[in-house]
Amino acid sequence: MQRTGNVLRVHFADRKGTFLAPLIVLGIVVIVIGLIGAVATATGTDREALWEGMQYNGAVWALLGMGIGIGFATMGQHLSFALGMGITRREWVIGSGLMFVIMAASITAIVVIGKIIELATSGWGMGVRMFDTVHTGTGPWWQTAIQTFLIALAGMCFCAMIGSVWNRWGKTGLSWLGGVALILLVLVFGIGIIAPWEQVLRLLETLMGFGWGVWMSVLAGSTVVSAIVWAILTRRAEVR
């Protein structure tokens, strides 16, 4: 427990960098959206239409995207520093995993609280929205909570996994990873081109038809897979 605390200390020692910077980004986003709302109100734009249109507003990614930075940093400079301070790889994975959960939960708390206020005030009194959007779900608050948590956690685990590939095999490893991704992409598009249009459309329809629960399970599954690959690769990680 004490040793896990050491890992958290490495992650959270620089509080300004860890918490303040993302909150500043969030603040700027909030100001911009407030300005949009103010302009819309001043020019007499239809509030209903504005509310409707802004459900696609991607400003929440300023928060969700934090996971990417956190995931990469965990396997970049932070790992070298932690190993240098005598933390084991096992402790590092456990402690960092815990940190991922804490950070994803914090992001979720902000989004859910934001959403509740947003709905209660009819879009901050101006018909604007950034927390009750399609990205983190426009359903009930608990769906948004689960969706936000999983997206943020998936981002961290996936990027930590890429970071561990880089640690083990350097640029060559990343090239291989990119190559595999490219082949998959080509395959998908290849099928789209070769296969009859109707079939492709039907496939898309089926995919879209999957319920929220299925999509969340897919997200949770990829998070778990990324986390496992990350943990396995980190077991033999060396300082670079």
Binding site: V10, A13, D14, A73, S80, M85, I87
Partner: peptide, 26 residues
Amino acid sequence: VCFIQEGQVYPDGFTPEHVLTVARGI
């Protein structure tokens, strides 16, 4: 064990105070 490494990598944004905080805990 304490290892003072030549060219130790410190996380971006770290100050000496952060390093002391971590070392104190470890």
